Computed example of a mutant assay.
Amino acid sequence: MRKSEINRRTTETAIQLELNLDGTGESSISTGCGFLDHMLTLFARHGCFDLNVKCTGDTYVDDHHTVEDMGICLGTAFSQALGEMRGINRYGDIILPMDEALILCAADLSGRSFLSYEFQIPSEKVGTFDTELTEEFFLAFTRKANITLHVRQLSGNNSHHIIEAAFKAFARVLAQAVKINEDFKDTIPSTKGVLI
């Protein structure tokens, strides 16, 4: 089983995270940020990843440190769970609708960190969540997971739907990319022979 555990403590957050890439979408999420909890719960469900998260952070300041550090920890967990990435599909892509929102997302588990993020989120907040933190989460994840990620809003005017569709698309793209390809299960999908 491709699993990992992360324990990360700073002066701003303390995070315990368990990830199983070959799960069933079960999750237990507590970050102190309700909207982020919702996004991570649907991320686990749509990716069929088992994800347990316990985070305490300085949310009395704002949600920035919690959101960014969750991206750091989840990206690190993915990298560790994948190991040398033998037999994976490596690539994933989707165009995902959610009501009026339409999201394009594509990933390459390349060993190279790059984020292309193109969004026009109409409101500054969804509830108490600062919508600009969505980019911070994806940036932190891609840096620590060492993946190339393109995520783009094609349409939409409801901030909640746009961000939710982005997390669903992200989960489904990762699920495609980490899936074991039975035709190549003993090889690393790169002419270099490594993906790190």
Rank of each mutant, 00 (worst) to 15 (best):
T10F: 10
C33P: 03
T13V: 11
L19V: 06
M39P: 10
M39C: 10
T41A: 13
L17T: 03
H46F: 13
F35E: 12
A14M: 05
I6N: 07
R9L: 11
Q16R: 15
T24H: 13
Q16H: 13
S4W: 00
A14V: 08
S28V: 06
E5S: 13
S28Y: 08
N20E: 14
N20S: 13
D37L: 06
I29G: 04
G47M: 05
E18N: 13
K3D: 00
D37Y: 02
T31I: 05
L21K: 06
E26K: 15
D37H: 02
A44M: 01
D37S: 07
S4A: 09
G34K: 04
S27R: 07
S30F: 09
N20P: 05
S4R: 00
I6R: 06
T13W: 02
N7H: 15
F35C: 07
A44N: 04
F43G: 03
A44R: 02
G23N: 11
D22E: 14
L21H: 06
E5P: 00
A14G: 02
R45Q: 14
L17K: 01
N7S: 14
F43Y: 11
E12Q: 10
K3V: 10
F43I: 07
F43Q: 02
I6W: 02
T13E: 02
R9K: 15
R45N: 05
H38Y: 09
G23V: 09
I29P: 02
D22Q: 10
S28F: 09
M39K: 09
R45A: 13
L42G: 01
T24G: 12
E12L: 07
L19E: 04
S27I: 03
T31E: 03
F43W: 13
L17N: 07
T10N: 10
G23C: 09
E26Y: 08
I6H: 02
H46W: 04
C33V: 15
N20R: 06
R8Y: 08
R9S: 15
N20Y: 02
H46K: 12
N7I: 14
T41P: 01
S28Q: 15
D22M: 07
L19I: 04
G25P: 10
S4Y: 01
T24M: 12
N20K: 04
E18H: 12
G47W: 03
G34F: 11
G47H: 06
L42A: 01
N7T: 14
A44Q: 02
L36R: 09
R8N: 09
T10C: 12
K3H: 00
N20G: 03
E18I: 09
E18S: 13
E26P: 05
F43K: 03
D37M: 06
I15E: 04
Q16W: 06
E5R: 13
L40I: 06
C33H: 09
E18T: 14
I29R: 03
G34N: 12
G23Y: 09
G47L: 04
S28D: 15
